[in-house]
């Protein structure tokens, strides 16, 4: 995991989910820890698609629960 890429990811999460930097850890759960619902996750992925220049299918979001899962999904597309 590149620090630079995770910092980019973190910046997106902070902006879209209105959370603080220390909340965005690999283990953080979108629902329980970041108070993000399914549409927040869609918005985050849209932002990540722009920033990382990747395309994520909606069906791939079904089982995403943690920051780490979302990060790995996006990075796997690079």
């Amino acid at each position: 995991m590149s620090d630079e890429q995770f910092e980019q990811f973190k910046a997106c999460a902070i902006e879209v989910l209105a959370v603080s930097a220390d909340q965005v850890t690999m283990e953080a759960r979108f629902g329980d820890d970041l108070d993000a619902d399914s549409l927040d996750l869609v918005e985050l992925v849209m932002k990540l698609e722009e920033v990382f220049d990747v395309t994520v299918d909606e069906s791939e979001l079904e089982n995403i629960e943690t920051v780490g899962q979302a990060y790995n999904l996006v990075i796997s597309k690079k």
């Binding site: 549409l39 996750l41 869609v42 918005e43 909606e58």
Partner: peptide, 12 residues
């Protein structure tokens, strides 16, 4: 309605 996909397409 598939709310998530409609949301994404709507914004785009």
């Amino acid at each position: 309605m598939n709310g998530k996909e409609v949301f994404r397409r709507a914004v785009t």
